[in-house]
Design a protein around this nucleic acid. Structure first.
Lengths: 135, 135
DNA sequence: CTGCATCCCGGGCGATACTG
DNA sequence: CAGTATCGCCCGGGATGCAG
């Protein structure tokens, strides 16, 4: 590593290197737009299908179904069917799902802390590179 | 990571609720498959275009270009062109980019800690739901 | 080596309609 | 209310070719 520079200090140096450790599998999940929103909503408590859909404005019924299925498959949430009419299905975070909320929290914190800087950087870049088509 | 209290009860309660805070903008970036890998690679030091491409096996030249452009636009990396022949372009993390590596580190840690449990959960689920088509 | 333009395909995702 | 099935569009992104 390039030494002789100012206090570079401690790089996190992601353990797994640039290859594919377990990060990919996790990113495919939490990197997913809807998954994160569902987890965030469930972090507040048990929710029914319709409740989730109403709490997450843009989501289609199809995507919500797929999303909760995948989260359930990964062991991040539980799906409880109550045999009644009309049907009722409750979704709830598992212990692992709860632990994930802390990661999401860290994400939200970092976002809150840097979103302004990012927004300004984008403005400057767009101004310096008109019609680049990058987004 | 602040006082994590013991488990249960204390939900992180992501500040922004289920709507769209700055999380989305950040997720669109770090949630991106290639962006994370580029950041991880650059966390180890300055890299040239070809170096990055070689360090990230599956990436196409097109996607690498798009990825570094977007990261540059967001102010996460710098792009330095050295007027020489053959051309040389160096990419390096900015201060903000470095701070992001800590988030990625947290991500990698969580992944390492739970990937086994997730893998097992998936196996169990797939076994209980044959031919579901979910992934 | 670095980077842009073009072509083109697969699949992700929304919209809609139907069942229990 | 909860969920499945089907259709169709759009675009992400790989492959290739060309330029500086």
């Amino acid at each position: 590593m390039s030494a002789g520079h100012t206090a570079v200090t401690t790089e996190p140096v992601v353990t797994c290197g640039g290859e594919d450790c377990g990060i990919r599998g996790v990113l495919d999940r939490i990197g997913d737009k809807w998954s994160v929103l569902v987890v965030v909503e469930l972090a507040q408590g048990v929710r029914r299908f319709r409740q989730l859909q109403r709490a997450i404005p843009g989501i289609s019924q199809r995507m919500l179904t797929l999303t909760v299925r995948r989260l359930e498959r990964d062991g991040l949430i539980t799906r409880t069917v109550h045999p009644m009419v009309p049907p009722q299905v409750d979704y709830e975070l598992t212990a692992m799902g709860h632990s994930l909320t802390y990661l999401v929290k860290a994400l939200a914190d970092w976002s809150a802390e840097h979103q302004d800087a990012i927004a300004r950087a984008r403005e400057r870049w767009d101004e310096a590179n008109p019609g680049s088509g990058i987004h």
